[in-house]
Every structure is written in structure tokens, then in C-alpha cells.
Design a protein around this nucleic acid. Structure first.
Lengths: 198, 198, 198, 198
DNA sequence: AATGAATGAGCCTTCATTCAT
DNA sequence: AATGAATGAAGGCTCATTCAT
């Protein structure tokens, strides 16, 4: 019989992660020391190291979470059966909604850089991105089959561009909170749906 | 009077920066120590600190350079008098051309994260981005006035989205070198120019 | 729970201080590196920094201790109910007794200079000195009331001079160990008690 | 024929010393870097090192100057043919007069500590002190022969105490500028001349 | 005589992490 | 499960000083 419930352990782990996220969003991965994380969590070094193998693991977990959350938001939007311009218009809002308590999108920008240096994280992150790209590509395929989109576009490339539009929003909003989802979404929808005069 | 020429000083500074860029591209800003930079430059600590106030300043200079180079490539493309889809199609190639010697686009991704934590860098970077956004917006304005684009689009928002498309390319290519400028450019051009069947 | 006893912590702190004092007496505050202190203490850097915020704090603690010890010796002598000449004659011996293990009086001379540059240390030290001056002044007051001393002397000024005599001994003995407490004390007693022929 | 006059060289040397003294009085010997001294002097490193072998030499020169100045003031007072109490009463004022532009007495306190660590400086300083002690002792001898002072005092010891009184003034005044020469001198004169009621 | 770029040893300190309790 | 004292490598940087010009 375990001394403590599994739920307790999971909750503890989560608590540490969210404390770390707070620190990381405030100061960045590398300007945050384990001392900071430990203090923010109100624990002792030993306790934190009981749940994580090291700082590295915490960064990886948080990075993955941030990127996964973005991916999840995109995939959820894709599944909503809207027209392509509607879909694209709504993505920024879906992203914005992620930043409930923590600055998940700011963490995502940092995670992007981290993934460049950490092969394991890079692979994990790439996997998530591939899933999102697949979802977007399938949606474009459908649109093409439905004649909604001209036959000679490359769904792979279009999916990448659509993802790029989302990534650009995340980045620009991280730099400047005045970049709103509504404006950016309108622009995106215009680009995708009717930029060229008929 | 051993006062060396100003050109010599500038060249030395540049040498240090490019040595640092090599290190940073290889290991990231924070896994690179000043020792690494100093060794790569083949100098002594004192010499490096003669030209830069600290690691921070070197990171900032390189970050700014990377982001400025991206901005310059975009602005140069904008000034080339192409149609909007042509312009957008060509941007990834222009970006790709930046990575001649150093991995300037990889550095850019790191710089993005850095700018989130360093207010001074953030401000400088934002200024550069604003210039690029202005150039793109003006181009869209022109297209609108020429009837090339429907009148009810918001040029500001469209400029941001166009920039986002470029940023997305930088990021996706940094993660996966197989993402080619040609493919992404084709996708971008399709999105902007004729995604919707007529 | 590895929480060690408070006594253990205090002892550790004291051990570091005495190691530092050894180094400082040997080489001076500024020619002693933290490496020296750490090696002398037989600890790791982290351990030392666990107990002190930095070299500065160690210097301050040792300086304060040295000056406080001197003050304590003076106050103890004052409380011994001797005649003024007896008291003054005994002070050098009391001071000399401080240098049992460490060279506390040599440290005091260094502390004097340090207090000139470190406002916090200066204030602390001044406070200690004021206490000693008070004690001396009270003693002089008593002597005056007892008619032991002429009525028109300023007890404050006399107290300062008495302290000065002690400080001069500390300094001269630090430079030249041949200056003995016995000789100096005899001189001091003569000055105070019967310099002028009757 | 020398390129520059000897006077020019001496003046330059003096200029560097006074710049250094300014820095040292402001920040202490060890918190002052050669950069500081060089900047204060408005010269280049090479120029300063042309006149001094190193920081060490500058510290030694300034320390010696400060201590010598004190010694000179005492000896000048001794030669003035006053009664012993008058002499002692006047010493603090003579000391105070030294602090024209620079804080020579503050530098002296630092020099005391320095002499403890630097054998060469210690020897030089001790020599100066011995001269002062000799002068004081001779004065006491004279007083003894004149019957001004009781025959059984030890002139050596009394001279040391007299010097100690001066050193105490220097120290106490360095810590607290409110300690005035007038007050301290009055106290000293009282101690020496008539502390004990008749 | 003077310049100032360059040197490189060494400084103080922090950090992620461990392990006896 | 949790504590926190301890580790020790490594970090960024400063410093007194030199020497080609």
C-alpha cells in the first residue's frame, strides 16, 4: 500500500511545474535558477529532485506542455467544421485563450529556441508539430476535394503556411500584447479568403 | 602613438561577433560560455571585454543583427516591384539566402526568446519589426489602391500576417532543414494569391 | 529531517570566521582570496556561501569582532574599581591578553581602515566605540565627583584621550611586537598620574 | 640635453600621486583600481607606468607621505619650546592642519594597515615613527632634567604614550569629523598636565 | 614621453545537484 | 516523502601590467 495516493504525487508534480512556469515566464529558462523554482514552489531541493531528474526535465516538460497546448488548440479548431477562412480567422483567438494563468505562449517562444539545442525536446516537439500539420493538411485536402480550393495547391505546403501564420501570431503577440487575436485573425482570414479582388 | 585605425577596431569587433555567432549557433546563447567565445576568437578575456561590456552586450548585438538581417531581406524583397503573390513566394528564398556562413535564422529564433526577457533588446527588435511592418503595409496599401486587393482589408493586419508567414518559415526551417524555401514559398503564394477556387 | 542543531550551525559559522581570521591576519583582508579562506576552513565554496553572503560579510564580521573585543577589554578594566592611574596602567595588558590564538589586535588595525570605506561597518564600529567612551567618561565623572580629579576637566575629552592611548598602544604594538604592555602601561600611568613633578 | 625639464617630470609625478590620493581617500587602496587612478589623472596606463613601477609603489609613496606628514607636524610642534601640556594640547590642531586638500589623515589610517602587510613600507614607516619618538623622548628628557617632570618616569614610554595620544586623535577624527582638535587637545593637555587634583 | 590595445592569471560567486538524516 | 547542508565545477568578469607603435 502506497504511503501517499497517486493523486497526491501527481498534484505535487503539477504544483512544481506550475511554479517553474511562473518563474520561467518571468525570467526565462536560463535566468531562472533551481533555487528560484524551489522557493516559488515552497519546497526543498530534495523534494523537487524527488519528482524531477533535474532542471532539464522541468524545462522539457514545460516546453512540451506549451507546444502541445498550442497544437491542441489548433487541432480542436480544425475539427470544428468551419470554412477555411473561418477556421484561420478563429485560430488566433483559440491561441489567446491558452494564456489563462501562465503565459503559455511566451513559454512557447522560449521552447522554440530550446528545441534547437536539445535533441530530445526537439524530437518531441517536432512530433507534436507533425500531428498538427497532418490535421491541417487533411483539412486542406478535404477542401480541395470539395472544390473549395483549387486543385493545384500543395496541401502540405499550405498546411505549413497556415501553421506559420499561427506561429507568427504567437511571436508577435508575445512581443507586443497590443497585437490582438481579433485583428490578426481578420487579417489572416482576408489573406486566406479574399485578398485578391474578384 | 599606437592608436590603430577605426577600421581595425571595427574589424576586431566584427571578428568577435562572428566568433560568438559561431558558438551561439552551435550551442545556444546560454550553453556558450565566455571562455568559448574568447577561445573561438583566439583572444584574451581582456581583449574581448575591451570591445564589449559583457556577454549580454554580445548576445544583444548578435540578436539585433540576426533580426535586422531578416528585416532587411524582407524590405529588399518588398522593393522589387513584384505582384503580391510573387513577393510572398519569394520571401522564403530571400530568408534562406541569409544563412550563407552563419546560421543567422537559427540565431533569430533564439533572439526571439531573448527579446522577451531583455527590455532593451526587445525595444530595439520591436523597432526593426515595425519598420518591416510599415514596408509591408505600404505595399498592401498600394495594391489596394491599384484595385489589386479588395478595399475592405486592413493593411495593418495583412502586413502582420505576411510577416507571420515569414516568421513561421524561419521557425519551421530551423527545426527541420528539409522545409525548403521553394515549397513553403509556393504554399505562401497559393494562400495569398489563389487559395480559393474562382 | 537533516536539520542540524543550531549549535552546529553556530559552530560552523565560527569555524569559518576563525579560518578567515587566520588568513586575514597572515595576509590582510585584500590579499586573502576567498579560495584561501575556503581552503583554510577545509570546506567548499558553497558551504562558506551558505553561512555568509560574501567576502564582505566575513570581513565585516571579523572587523566587528576585533573591535568589539578591544572594547570589551577596556570596559572590563573600567569596572574593576582601580584608581585612574592603575586603570590606565592595566589597559595595555588587558589588550595584549586578547591575542591568545589569533592576532586580534592586528585585525583591529585593518578593521579601522575598513570602517572608513564601509558605512555599515563604520556605523557598527562607531557604536561600539561610543559604548567604551561612555564607560570611560563615567569613570572620569566618578573620579571628579570624588575629588580625585580636578573639577575643570571635560570628562568627554579625557575619555577620548584615554581611548586614544589604548589605540596608540594597539597600533604601535602591531608594528613592533617589542612594544610591551608593561612599558607602555607604565608610561601611560605616569602620564595620567604623575607626569608633572609636584 | 633632456627632452623635458626635470621639473616637468616631478610635476607629472606629483600630479599622479595627488590623483591617486584622491581616489584612495574616496575608495580605499584596494577598492581603487589603476584604471580609476589613470582616469582621475587624465592619463594613459603607459604614462602612469612610466613614472611608477606599479600600484604598489604609488600606495607606498602615498602611505609614506601621509605618515611622514604626521611625523613632521609632531616634530615641528616639539621644536616650538612650549611647556609639555601646551605642546600636547597643540598637537591635534597641528595634525588637523594637514588635511588641506586631500584627506591625509584618512590615508594615514589606511597606511597603518598597509604597513602591517608590506615589509618595505612597514620598515620605512617605522623609521619615520622612530624619529618622532626620539624627538618626543628628547623633549621629555629635557623636561625631566629641568625638574619639570618627576625623575622616575621612563622617557621612552612617555614618548610612546604621547604619540599614541596623537594616533588616537587621527583615528577618532577619521571616523567622526565632529571630534575636534580643540576638544581633544584640551583633554590631552588636562591628562598630561593636571589630571590629578593637587 | 606617451598611447591604448592586449594579456592572462585570478577574482568572487552561483549553480545544479547529492545524500546523510 | 522530505530536509537542507554540502559539493565543486564553472561562470562572467576585472585587474595590474606590458609593449608595439
Amino acid at each position: 500500500m502506497p504511503r501517499v495516493t497517486e493523486a497526491y504525487l501527481a498534484e505535487r508534480r503539477e504544483h512544481i511545474l506550475s511554479s517553474a512556469a511562473t518563474c520561467f515566464a518571468r525570467e526565462g529558462f536560463h535566468r531562472t535558477s533551481m533555487r528560484d523554482v524551489i522557493a516559488e514552489a515552497g519546497l526543498s531541493p530534495g523534494a523537487v529532485y524527488h519528482y524531477f531528474r533535474g532542471k532539464h526535465d522541468i524545462i522539457a516538460a514545460i516546453s512540451l506542455d506549451a507546444v502541445t497546448a498550442v497544437g491542441g488548440a489548433v487541432r480542436a479548431s480544425v475539427g470544428r467544421g468551419q470554412s477555411l477562412p473561418e477556421l484561420v480567422a478563429g485560430l488566433p483567438t483559440a491561441i489567446e485563450a491558452l494564456d489563462r494563468a501562465d503565459d503559455r505562449t511566451r513559454l512557447a517562444v522560449q521552447a522554440w529556441g530550446e528545441a534547437l539545442r536539445d535533441p530530445a525536446l526537439g524530437a518531441a516537439l517536432r512530433e507534436g508539430v507533425d500531428g498538427v500539420l497532418d490535421a491541417l493538411r487533411e483539412r486542406v485536402d478535404l477542401a480541395r476535394e470539395a472544390g473549395e480550393v483549387s486543385a493545384d495547391v500543395d496541401p502540405h505546403a499550405v498546411a505549413r503556411v497556415a501553421l506559420g501564420i499561427v506561429q507568427g501570431f504567437i511571436l508577435q503577440r508575445a512581443w507586443d500584447p497590443e497585437v490582438t487575436a481579433a485583428d490578426y485573425g481578420r487579417g489572416a482570414s482576408a489573406v486566406v479568403g479574399g485578398l485578391l479582388a474578384p
